[in-house]
Design a protein around this nucleic acid. Structure first.
Lengths: 205, 205
DNA sequence: TATTTGATAGTTTTGTTAAAAAAGTCAGGA
DNA sequence: TCCTGACTTTTTTAACAAAACTATCAAATA
């Protein structure tokens, strides 16, 4: 007897939630399928009934997180008319997203060179949505005459997002790594606010 | 009988030059001390007479390269009064420096996380010199009223240099790595020019 | 039939050891 | 002081077994 598609979805959700907690706490490689199953009081084999393999489970959790992130910025940025406010919202939301899920992303940090396509799709999807949302805000601001005309709004947004990504900490004996340590995230965030300030000013009329 | 300090320096220079060529061609880990000695038709033991070990030899070559780079930008940027020209010169020189020595830096790319202190000192020295030179140019431009007053000129330069570092390529199915592939350097360079354009504009009165 | 599991098969990681290669040292020669 | 051949020590590589984990499946349950 079928428990129904609803029940199946609920169980899938429960698995995603438990997996998320484990990945967040221990990181990808240190959490085993047995542990996830144990946290749910179910057998490991059942996990494989709902998800094809461990990486697909991780990817599904990542996709869920990404969707939440996208919903947050879509809802808000589409409402904002002020370009600076829009970018500030992006940076702040992004900052919180990274801080709150820092350990979860160790998989991405460690496999930086050779990530599965699905992860890149998600990353690219986020970037593209940000480019569209913020690009539209730029277009609106150009029409209002607030900022000077721009050849390619998407290109400008992409450039600023890259530039923001490049911001690192440079304290005393500083060593710049590709992925910032968690203790540097706040300082980086501050610098990004300054960068937005100058960059947006550079776009204004 | 001493050959004199001059002769010793000349030999040291020859070793540095040969080592540079080997490192540039094969990268750090794939070049052996035997090969360097062989290229100079001298014994490996002699290398150890002039340099304490392989890493110190690599560091000495790096220091030499860094000094050439620094001399180039010091000579020019201290002459320039236009802020944008100054930053453009930095970016162009930096671009050439990376393109011309790409393979040489594989040591730095591969050991990104755990570089010897001496390498970081060199990196920091370059950054600090750039900050001073470009910071001075900013100060001069502020005095002339060309750009608006800035709280901390060094901070602004540091921010822009970080931002420039962050620029990456984003072609079709793009995968952003911490170190750009050599084939992407030209595209990155173009984007950096745009970033400078906007950023400098954001500083202007 | 849909869901679940214990048992088990297959794969990856980890640890061990030996051989090879390269780094690094040194007594002695010019 | 400058230089080398021979030597020692350290690092890298390869092979292989043990352990840990991923993934599968026949059978049980509901």
């Amino acid at each position: 007897m079928s428990a129904g598609i609803d029940q199946q979805d609920i169980k899938r959700e429960k698995i995603l939630e438990a997996a998320y907690q484990q990945f967040l706490h221990y990181g990808y490689s240190k959490t085993t399928m047995n542990e996830i199953a144990g946290a749910l009081s179910m057998s490991k084999a059942l996990l494989y009934y709902y998800f094809p393999d461990k990486s697909q489970l991780y990817i599904a959790v990542t996709r869920k997180l990404a969707n939440e992130y996208l919903k947050t910025i879509e809802d808000r940025i589409s409402q904002l008319t002020d370009l600076k406010e829009a970018f500030l919202f992006q940076v702040n939301t992004h900052h919180n997203f990274i801080v709150n899920n820092y350990n979860f992303f160790d998989f991405i940090r460690l496999n930086e060179q050779n990530l599965p396509d699905e992860i890149w799709q998600i990353i690219n999807q986020i970037r593209q949505t940000e480019m569209e949302l913020l690009g539209n805000t730029i277009i609106a601001n150009v029409k209002e005459g607030k900022i000077k005309p721009v050849d390619n709004p998407g290109e400008v947004v992409d450039l600023l997002l890259d530039a923001l990504q490049g911001v690192r900490v440079g304290a005393t004996g500083f060593k710049k790594n590709s992925f910032p340590k968690i203790e540097h995230l706040d300082e980086i965030h501050k610098k990004r606010l300054l960068l937005i300030d100058i960059f947006i000013r550079g776009l204004m009329n």
